[in-house]
């Protein structure tokens, strides 16, 4: 599969628009403009990185899409429906794994199913499969306390997969992990998201990570939070970690830096 994809750098993906924002604005209280006039258009199966310094409204944008908070003005649709409340086709992952300490890994993964309906044998099967997919086979019955930070995030990812959502919102999911673990998880995340053909919005403040993972990078700048630039990243997939040292890669890094620096 990789062989056929070679030499055919991904042009702007041809999928349907899944998430669309037109001058989306969010003001907290009276004065804090967390996000101003954001325009974006995310297509099915795309991997989008959101990068920017802290406080520039990345989490705010994500929460708006998730329907966790209400926008102040503008239009925001998911699958052509106005976002008003959390939807089942959107799943989230946070910087903290937020696992329930009193539940085993698999019980944590089953939580989304449990909230929708009574757990069936199918759900359990699916949870096992999700855990397998994130590389936690054999750890199903471990409690969060018995797992390392990286493994806890894997459980959180499995829980996200369990929701069956095909839109995944991730807010600095590996931000609290060490460099090595993070790199490994990034590689696996790409694989998993590719397998599931999920549309992904990935927040990070690490420029390399943002570019490495994404089809497009939304560069955000603070005060007020804006989308300053949208940069296409056209490396073929699957990507090797070594592309990070290539010249093309570094040109994009420079471009992101310039955008952030000029504000």
């Amino acid at each position: 599969m990789a062989a056929t994809a070679k030499k055919k750098p991904k042009q702007s993906p041809s999928g349907q628009t899944v998430i669309e924002g037109n001058s989306v604005t969010k003001v907290f209280g009276e004065t804090v403009t967390a996000l101003e006039g954001a325009d974006f258009n995310i297509r099915s199966g795309e991997f989008i990185s959101l990068v920017g310094p802290s406080g520039c409204g990345k989490s705010t944008l994500l929460r708006l899409v998730a329907g966790l908070i209400e926008k102040t003005s503008g239009d925001l649709t998911v699958n052509d429906e106005e976002v008003t409340k959390p939807r089942t086709d959107i799943g989230m992952m946070f910087q903290k794994a937020v696992l329930l300490d009193w539940r085993t890994a698999i019980e944590n993964v089953l939580l989304p199913s449990e909230i929708q309906h009574r757990i069936t044998q199918d759900d359990k099967q699916k949870a096992m499969a999700s855990l397998d997919l994130v590389g936690l086979k054999g750890f199903e019955f471990h409690f969060p306390k018995q797992l390392s930070g990286g493994m806890q995030q894997r459980v959180a990812l499995a829980r996200l997969i369990q929701t069956g959502a095909n839109i995944m919102l991730m807010d600095e999911p590996f931000g609290a992990l060490d460099e090595f673990t993070r790199e490994r998880l990034n590689v696996e995340l790409m694989r998993i998201v590719g397998e599931l053909k999920a549309t992904t919005l990935f927040v990070t403040h690490n420029i390399q990570e943002a570019i490495y993972l994404a089809d497009r990078v939304l560069v955000m700048t603070p005060r007020p939070g804006r989308i300053a630039k949208i940069i296409d990243v056209n490396f073929e997939r699957p990507r090797d970690i070594s592309i990070q040292t290539s010249r093309e890669f570094n040109i994009i890094v420079e471009e992101v830096r310039d955008t952030l620096g000029s504000h």
Partner: peptide, 21 residues
């Protein structure tokens, strides 16, 4: 835990479910 609460909300949990679970 704000994040855990947000996670529950994003899963579409009811007030009752969030309370007990």
């Amino acid at each position: 835990d704000e994040e855990a609460e947000e996670m529950f909300r994003s899963l579409g949990a009811s007030k009752f479910q969030t309370f007990w679970k």
